[in-house]
Amino acid sequence: MGKPVIATASLAGCFGCHMSILDIDERILRLVELVEFNKSPIDDIKRFTKPADIGLIEGGCSNSENVAVLRDFRKNCRVLVSLGECAVMGGLPALRNSIPLKECLEEAYLNSPTVDPGERVIPNDEDLPVILDKVYPCHEVVKIDCFLPGCPPSADLIWEALTAIIEGRPLNLAYDLIKFD
């Protein structure tokens, strides 16, 4: 049997969770021995070339492209993990969720003091992903198997979760591993 395969994606997130993956310090050398990375911004593999054992999702779903990527991950990953507050509950992008989308777009593209008066237009090019009415946590779009909260989740929590999933054991969640900030 080959090494377990990991894939990662950043949807409506800030890449902080991916930085936290790298924050596992020298354990990254062990991780490289332990697993093989497939589709991920870390190695810039754009498409799945084989099914993955673990998919790590950073960020919630804010637009149609996020949904498509998330569904692709669900199809290709055995265990799908919501990594960080944005994937788990929408995070700061979801601050817009109690404001109508039209108001948000008008504020950002028409009325904001930094908009060039000659450029007051809400982007609607057909090549742009369609923005959703709300930012959705990943588990409200596809089935998620494991949740790692935190903004970002600590490197220790990520390490614990990855090794637990690889070894097929339950997560050992010490008190200070669970943080929402």
Binding site: L95, F180, D181
Partner: peptide
């Protein structure tokens, strides 16, 4: 939104969620 809340770390609701291992509602 815990990440942007001034009370984070001192919040009783959050502390209960930690103690009860709430990973997601």
């Amino acid at each position: 939104f815990c990440p942007s809340c001034e009370k984070s770390g001192n919040c009783e609701l959050q502390a209960l969620a930690y103690r009860y291992r709430m990973m997601v509602p």
